[in-house]
Design a protein around this nucleic acid. Structure first.
Length: 233
DNA sequence: ATATCGATTATCT
DNA sequence: GATAATCGATATG
């Protein structure tokens, strides 16, 4: 499973490391669709953060869709404000907001023409740059077991911290342009089954089944018994 | 194992 | 002034 995707860095004939899919961001057309569709297809894709001399990647394993119509939990529900302006812009941009005085959360705008739907990224499976994620989270990893890695990126606030995502730094970033330093790329990973559940932590429109997770993936947020797993580093 | 609660601040009413 | 798309710590069975 996860170990296979670490080979997004492969060796060419000269033995030099070359980047394959990582440098190709998903196109804007991917995001210019309804949020439920985008949410589904985002599962299994890979979020990439490039710094000056480092790269962090992780697989998307949990998302939530927020709709423009009949969804009172969406930040866009009450219309455009300064905070949510990105949602009313073109698709494929990062909407980053600050919550509970502590955490940032990453959304991706979707739908054509300012319809203000989006997808919240809720959990990732760490792939490359695990040590930098741990640094960003100020966590000392005891090992590379699933249980330890899960602490890095399992939850919207956690993954934002692990990837160094902030409102000042990333709100409005174009995720279809690798020059932004933050983008999403394709993966050969096959998502066998998607499970839909109500969304987490909301009070309005709380019954809609708009949270989507990769069935059985241990990096999905929430408490759960972790099966023992061999380290990946 | 689950339950409850405090932290901390941008944003909106 | 109240609320919030969370997290981590503490308490309790």
């Amino acid at each position: 499973m996860s170990c296979a995707d670490v080979t997004v860095l492969k060796l060419n004939t000269k033995g030099t490391k070359v980047r394959r899919d990582i440098e190709l961001a998903l196109p804007r057309s991917f995001y210019a669709r309804d949020p439920v569709r985008v949410a589904h297809e985002l599962l299994g894709k890979i979020l990439v953060r490039r710094g000056a001399k480092s790269i962090r990647t992780a697989r998307v394993v949990e998302v939530e869709a927020y709709l423009r119509e009949r969804d009172l939990a969406a930040h866009s529900a009450a219309g455009q404000t300064l905070r949510n302006a990105v949602l009313f812009g073109p698709p494929g941009h990062a909407y980053v907001y600050f919550i509970y005085g502590n955490h940032y959360c990453l959304n991706i705008s979707c739908e054509p023409e300012a319809r203000a739907g989006c997808v919240l990224v809720r959990a990732l499976e760490p792939l490359l740059g695990v040590e930098e994620m741990a640094r960003a989270r100020q966590i000392q990893l005891k090992d590379t077991s699933t249980g330890e890695l899960k602490r890095l990126t399992s939850g919207p606030g956690r993954l934002a911290e692990a990837f160094g995502i902030t409102r000042s730094g990333d709100n409005g970033a174009d995720l279809t342009d690798t020059k932004s330093g933050l983008w999403v790329t394709r993966s050969d990973f096959k998502v066998d089954k998607i499970i839909a559940t109500p969304r987490i932590g909301i009070t309005k429109s709380a019954d809609l089944p708009l949270r989507f997770v990769i069935a059985g993936n241990p990096f999905v947020s929430g408490k759960k018994t972790i099966l023992p797993r061999q380290g990946c580093l």
